[in-house]
Nucleic acid binder design. Structure first.
Lengths: 355, 355
DNA sequence: CCCGTTTCGGTAACCGTTTACCGCGCCGAT
DNA sequence: ATCGGCGCGGTAAACGGTTACCGAAACGGG
């Protein structure tokens, strides 16, 4: 039964550098140096050590190593959840850039609970992560701002970077790097795209007033309209929530009340656009022949809807990469705030307005 | 300038338990005990300590703590990528269960590179993670099997659990827990659903022969057919790849060659089904009136396609939760292998065959 | 008043590495 | 032959916690 044979003592114990040293007949220092490879060692010694390592199946203990000063650091990413494509892409970007820079990536979901978020921030301080990246919005109560600001300062003084990703700056009270995207510009571009197809009655559908992700989209839509001298009436500004359900229900209700007068819709998000399209289809209104529609986010689904949805692309993965680059290499990325561009990807849900 | 005032010495240094002890006028043991809260301490002492902690903004060093024996352990999840819904949901499940059990969750993407996967496994051994969960398939070269088997044994003897999630067992050579789903059963159910709508010419579209995720789906389709005494010809078995692109191209080509004879399609995945639907639409063939179609995976997109896609639901998030439960609580989950059920979610892409 | 208990706090060993510092032997240069 | 320097390896001191063990003080019962 060789399997049971473990070198006496507690068989569950990981073998340590001392075990290796004894076995190889050298000192622990030598083992450490051989393994680190940054110190001259005689080939014969090296061989002995390597053999012992193999035989004992030795692996370093990262905690001990960290204590002694060489830290394998990590990047933490705090997010509400992971399945929404926007978050998923950011996470992927973060993970990949982190890996590329030799870091491990800790992901923590916070739901929409500010307390969990705060708890994780604290935990990351204990871990000694070299960056914590908070992605997406959180409803910002004053209490939350205050706490986060406090933690942000603590992190900063501990050398841990805090990056807000896909979320605007929270002002000077919370010192953080910002990796964001041009939200307002995307809405402006989308609306302009529809405008130049000849539409004038352009509804904005979806979004929730006060939300940091919604407001800039409202603003972009409004600015594009104003730039052409159009002042949209309140009936063209339909907000309340987002997602497929909201888009469907709201449009259905408008249709039923015969209160839908627009020839085009700028939706707050692709889900909302999809919902609106379903309602239109049920009412036998052709998209894009009778009404044009553009979404926002460019989720994978957008390309597969019918008709394929024209929408605004957010460089989510790049956002994640940018966040860690800013955190890890401040000299190459000295800006405290970088805003990535958005652009409209043209598919088939917008048609020229015929009169 | 009180902010600059840091207690002499290097201002960048994290304050240690010793700093706190000095400041509070007690010993380090006392501080440790107050913080752990598992030892009787006089209220006055506790108060002094807490004040010092606050003033110095002290946080424990997890590495030191781990070295001393109290490990904050972590769960590692190794995945190809994070954005595919199947993976994203598993990750979410893992993370949430891990958090619930007080663990941190490390996610590592491996692309489809076995070497990176292996490297991460090794790294996790160094970290002393209490479980590593490998999700999804990897093309299994003998070399890879051998390596992984070796690591698996090493992990096991170190008390770290290895869980294969959403992937079948690799045999006795690689000792691992399995959290999988009934892949073959899903395909069987989907095909049966189509059969009982009166179809007999049922094509299987997509998947790659030899892949651990594809083969069971082929098998389920074939078994369902055989159970009704149907022996599908090779022209009804169209494999090669998966995803929208493949589905679209292959079906288009079949249509062009007038080689498409089926009245229903069982697709290897939802993307593939979506592609097929696009090709059908372009050929002016109505779904589901003229051909029925069912997908696999139930990605979010499936519900939003037109017509909404009937498909097989994989309990991905639950799969992730199960994986960590199995790893963390072997007494409550003694099985070395748990297979979660799949079921078909009926939407509108399958219609009764009219003759 | 004495003594056994209980309550609370300190001392110091230990966890597994890394690395500064030192010493030894050997080489080539003088 | 002597010596400076270099190549190589060992000793031991951190790193920042936890906790076994011990002792002092307080307290209550006889």
């Amino acid at each position: 039964m060789p399997r049971r044979a473990a070198d006496q003592a507690d068989p569950e114990r990981r073998s340590t550098i001392r075990d290796v040293a004894t076995r190889a007949g050298v000192s622990v220092a030598t083992v450490s140096r051989v393994l680190a490879g940054n110190y001259p060692t005689a080939p014969a010694t090296r061989a002995k050590v390597m053999r012992a390592v193999k035989e004992l199946d030795y692996v370093v203990n990262v905690h001990a190593r960290a204590l002694a000063g060489v830290t394998q650091k990590t990047i933490a990413i705090l997010t509400r959840e992971v399945v929404t494509p926007f978050y998923a892409y950011i996470i992927q970007g973060v993970e990949q850039q982190a890996a590329q820079d030799g870091r491990l990536c800790l992901v923590c979901t916070t739901g929409s609970d500010p307390d969990r978020e705060l708890a994780y921030v604290k935990m990351m301080r204990e871990q000694g992560a070299d960056a914590v990246i908070i992605v997406g919005g959180m409803t910002e109560t004053p209490e939350y701002r205050k706490q986060l600001g406090q933690y942000a300062q603590a992190l900063e003084s501990a050398g841990t970077k805090l990056v807000l990703c896909g979320r605007p700056s929270m002002g000077p009270d919370v010192p953080a790097l910002i990796a964001h995207y041009d939200n307002e510009g995307g809405a402006y571009a989308a609306t302009s795209h529809v405008l130049s197809a000849g539409h004038e009655q352009i509804m904005f559908l979806g979004g929730v007033p006060g939300f940091t992700t919604s407001e800039p989209r409202f603003a972009g839509w409004r600015r594009a309209l104003n730039d052409r001298g159009i002042d949209p009436g309140p009936e063209l500004f339909q907000t309340g929530s987002h997602g497929t359900h909201f888009g469907y229900e709201r449009l259905k209700e408008l249709l039923k009340r015969k209160a839908f007068k627009a020839t085009a819709i700028v939706a707050s998000d692709d889900g909302c656009a999809a919902g609106a399209m379903m309602a239109l289809r049920e009412a036998n209104i052709k998209v894009p022949d009778e009404v044009s529609i553009v979404g926002y986010d460019d989720v994978p689904m957008a390309a597969h809807m019918w008709p394929p949805l024209t929408t605004v692309r957010i460089p989510a993965e790049e956002l994640g990469r940018t966040a860690v680059r800013m955190a890890l290499d401040p000299r190459a990325n000295p800006a405290r705030e970088t805003i990535l561009g958005t652009h409209v990807v043209v598919r088939e849900s917008v048609a020229r307005r015929v009169r």
